[in-house]
Amino acid sequence: MSLPPIASLSSSPEHLQKILDLLFEPCPTLYTLIASSLPRTFSSYPEFIDFAADKMLSLVDDEDKIQKIIAAHPRLGAKKVDSKQSSEEQKSLQQGAEEEKRKLEKLNNEYEGKFEGLRYVVFVAGRPREEVMKDMRERIDRGDREAEKKAAIKAMRDIAKDRASKLQ
């Protein structure tokens, strides 16, 4: 699996959905948001990813759309993850004792209760479960919904850039 040349994005918009699915997660709302802004040329995938993140940030006050985009990401530590990329990135969270898995599940539930409609999104890529859970705890305790939406978009941008570097 690899990304087509960045030039194909502006010359063949039909590649857009495949590219967005590889870089982010499959999400019709994100596709519609980005497709409405093309055609436009980009010199690199990082530039395109920054563009997409800026478009997402422009929706931060549109709860319905931003929730759909953020919720497209799988729950951390989920047993079933549809995206091959997310599954690889979360490998470190699947290992370890059952007690730690239960703690992560409890934190996910607490996070989603505190920030209804959102999902905790963070750049994992092999980070230890303890570090991720500490970050989640801090974000729950901070209790700032607007900051959470922005943090999720920033994490999505970072994840996409990491994926792009591996898929080129």
Rank of each mutant, 00 (worst) to 15 (best):
M1E: 08
M1F: 00
S2G: 07
L3S: 07
P4M: 05
A7Q: 09
S12N: 11
S12D: 10
S12C: 03
S12G: 04
P13C: 03
E14D: 05
H15R: 00
K18W: 04
I19W: 00
D21L: 00
D21E: 07
L22E: 07
L22N: 07
P28Q: 12
L30M: 13
L30G: 15
L30E: 10
A35Q: 15
T41D: 15
S44C: 01
P46W: 08
F48G: 02
L57C: 07
D62S: 12
D64Y: 03
K68H: 12
H73C: 11
P74A: 02
G77P: 04
V81S: 08
S83A: 11
Q85N: 03
Q85Y: 12
S86Y: 08
E88F: 02
E88M: 00
L93A: 01
K103C: 05
K106Q: 10
N109G: 12
E112N: 15
G113W: 01
G117Q: 03
L118W: 00
P128S: 08
R129I: 15
V132P: 10
D135Y: 09
R137D: 13
R142F: 10
D144K: 03
D144R: 07
A147N: 04
K149P: 07
A152S: 15
I153D: 01
K154H: 13
K154N: 13
R157L: 07
D158A: 14
D158Y: 05
A160F: 02
A164Y: 10
